[in-house]
Design a protein around this nucleic acid. Structure first.
Lengths: 200, 200
DNA sequence: ACATTAACAGAGCAGCCACTCTATTATTCA
DNA sequence: TGAATAATAGAGTGGCTGCTCTGTTAATGT
């Protein structure tokens, strides 16, 4: 059949599945619920994906190329500061996704017991970690700039902070939260201290 | 029967359940697995807990009084700095628990769809949030001390950072991680900047 | 037009689940 | 000692689950 149609239908199933997984977790969502939301029969679902687990993997695997593209763009930025802003900007923008908290917790749970999925997450994280580390190392070479932590550690804490923000993304006042997040990230990047008590 | 024996047995069941929940999540663990680990029959399990959900709640509800005690101790400390060190010290010590990552992710997932459990977690968080905020406000009044964020926000980010560390607690080199965590917490508390690049 | 294959629906199935029920043993109290 | 009750085990149950299987429709190539 037309491979473009195939890809579009597959994506629609993945989208429906993501919503269900985010709401009820992997074990908590039945394939029937996914089929209902996607408007398909169970036969169709298993025509596109061999198992429920494979479908869950697809929800995250589809992010891999996008992440790679963004990292490449950030690394190609004129100066490291701009690259970091680009990268963190994308990550912060994703916080607005209402599915983010549910998917993040479902993914963490799954990573504990599904080694293949754990490898997938590791691949995603490694890309980001490497890009951030490289950019931070370039940044550290700038005159008058000193990082409070070694570049790899700073990169890991940047990821940690954003992950933590994902988990509490449902909270009110996202604007203020992201502003605070940016302030902390600034400090991790060794940017000069902002006037205390004020959020720029 | 002897209520002390009852409490001890109940605690043993909760402990076994915590291990299973941490490894496989709420929906992923069968009551049979819990019974096997606890060395009891299913009848006994449901004699102590009406439902699996109630058992999961118990895993966290048992932490409530301990948390309350710690917050009270910290608030009664001679100076706010000591209180904060006490509180964060306890929280960081809990990172060593190998069950922490699994339980944390299971809890986050459950909070998304079990309002009663969400309220329980909120109660735990609120205690900590209030204590940290009070201590940070006291700290902010100290001469020459300026917090980079308002006290409630700083308190929330302290919690976020520790939660994030929980999720990646399985990582190697816990020593270095906790040292870095302490450094970032120091900054959030407005402590003077540590020599850059060096982890004290 | 015709053969071939992909796409799809949905009934059906084997297995597992949380939980119940009943029978038996231990403990307490008078 | 002798009820009375709590504690426990474990077989049993109804319902749900992931997945398969069969039959049908739609698309494609010649």
């Amino acid at each position: 059949m037309n491979p473009e149609v195939h890809a579009r239908r597959r994506a629609a199933i993945v989208e429906a599945a993501a919503a269900e997984f985010a709401a009820h977790g992997v074990d908590g969502t039945g394939t029937a619920a996914i089929c209902r939301r996607a408007g398909i029969g169970s036969g169709t679902l298993f025509h596109y994906f061999a198992t429920k687990r494979e479908l869950f993997h697809a929800v995250f695997a589809d992010d891999l190329p996008r992440m790679a593209r963004r990292c490449a763009e950030a690394l190609a930025a004129p100066d490291p500061e701009a690259g970091l802003d680009l990268l963190t900007g994308h990550l912060i923008a994703e916080l607005a996704d209402p599915l983010a908290p549910g998917l993040a917790s479902a993914a963490l749970l799954q990573a504990n017991r599904d080694p293949e999925f754990a490898r997938l997450l590791t691949a995603l994280d490694a890309q980001l970690q490497e890009a951030l580390t490289t950019l931070l190392e370039r940044l550290a070479k700038a005159p008058g700039r000193a990082l409070p932590l070694p570049a790899p550690s700073a990169a890991r804490w940047i990821r940690n902070l954003i992950d933590a923000a994902h988990l509490t993304a449902g909270a009110a006042d996202r604007e203020a939260t992201t502003a605070e997040l940016r302030l902390i990230l600034s400090w991790l990047m060794g940017r000069g201290s902002v006037p205390p008590g004020k959020i720029p």
